[in-house]
């Protein structure tokens, strides 16, 4: 705990923390070590970013937290309590995830209404009608969209529905797996604004994964750069702005995010 910045004298219990997290898929010769010892702490109501390119294991970290990938070593804890084994319904109410591909994360044969009411049915909410309508309004969609099927929606609208689905059970942690990388630049701005507004309104904690440093910088207070399943370095916004980075890899990512220079 040496790297704790001075601004937090009595550091609160982190909302979410990973310590020496490892994820291994398969065994024997086909063993793939996707995450090789990652540690980070996300404070309550903070937005924390994981940056890396494909194969860096950044999405796997998210999947390990919510139980879609095995935790093979180290630990993950929430509010100081370790998360392990099969995730309970209570866990589902507290942690939700938004996936990268808005075309793959909505059931092609379920209407928006069904997508939004199902989590309410699972968690036995009473006032479902009102909640579905409110959830649509929250993500800036008209009530007209309520009975549409996913193929009648644009990519940006689908991602809004996915966000509404995640937030409808009132979680306090949202795991965002490249929520805008499948969208046009112009739609990305809308979705990022929406996520910013919702975080402020609902006092959410975000763990955001992206390959785009600019997006992370816009959304997050602190970030961890990952490469090949390992942590490269942890940075805060000021460091990123001043290019005060320690590793060559981060520097290359920074250059890349500035666009093509002839």
């Amino acid at each position: 705990m040496s790297a704790v910045p001075a601004e937090a004298p009595a550091a609160p219990t982190p909302k979410l923390s990973a310590s020496n997290l490892q994820v291994v898929f398969g065994h024997g010769r086909q063993e793939v070590r996707a995450v090789r010892g990652i540690s980070f702490n996300v404070r309550p109501e903070e937005s924390f970013g994981l940056v890396g390119e494909s194969g860096s294991g950044k999405s796997t970290v998210l999947r390990a937290i919510c139980g879609l990938a095995p935790i093979s070593g180290g630990s993950v804890s929430m509010d100081g309590t370790a998360i392990e084994g099969r995730r309970s319904k209570t866990f589902a109410r507290r942690v939700q995830m938004v996936f990268q591909d808005p075309y793959g994360s909505l059931h092609p044969r379920h209407t928006v209404d069904r997508v939004l009411s199902e989590p309410l049915a699972i968690h036995r909410f009473a006032d479902r009608e009102e909640r579905v309508v409110a959830a649509l309004k929250d993500v800036g969609l008209d009530a007209r969209f309520r009975f549409r099927l996913p193929h009648q929606l644009s990519g940006g609208q689908r991602q809004r529905i996915a966000i509404a689905r995640a937030l409808i059970v009132e979680p306090d942690v949202l795991l965002l797996d490249e929520p805008t990388s499948a969208l046009d630049a112009s739609i990305q701005a809308e979705v990022l604004n929406l996520l910013q507004r919702l975080r402020a309104e609902k006092k959410l904690t975000y763990l955001l994964v992206s390959h785009d440093l600019a997006v992370i910088d816009h959304m997050c207070d602190r970030l961890l750069v990952m490469q090949g399943g390992e942590a490269v370095e942890e940075l805060d916004r000021a460091g990123l702005k001043d290019h005060a980075v320690a590793s060559d890899y981060t520097r290359r990512l920074l250059t890349a995010s500035e666009g093509y220079v002839r």
Binding site: A185, S186, Q188, A189, E190, L192, N193, Q196, R197, L213, A214, V215, D217, H218, M219, L240, K241, L254, S257, E258
Partner: peptide
């Protein structure tokens, strides 16, 4: 204008 920039402000991004 809709793209975020490193070191940019935290204001909502201009929407198209």
């Amino acid at each position: 204008n809709c793209l975020p920039e490193i070191g940019g402000s935290r204001e909502p991004l201009p929407v198209l």
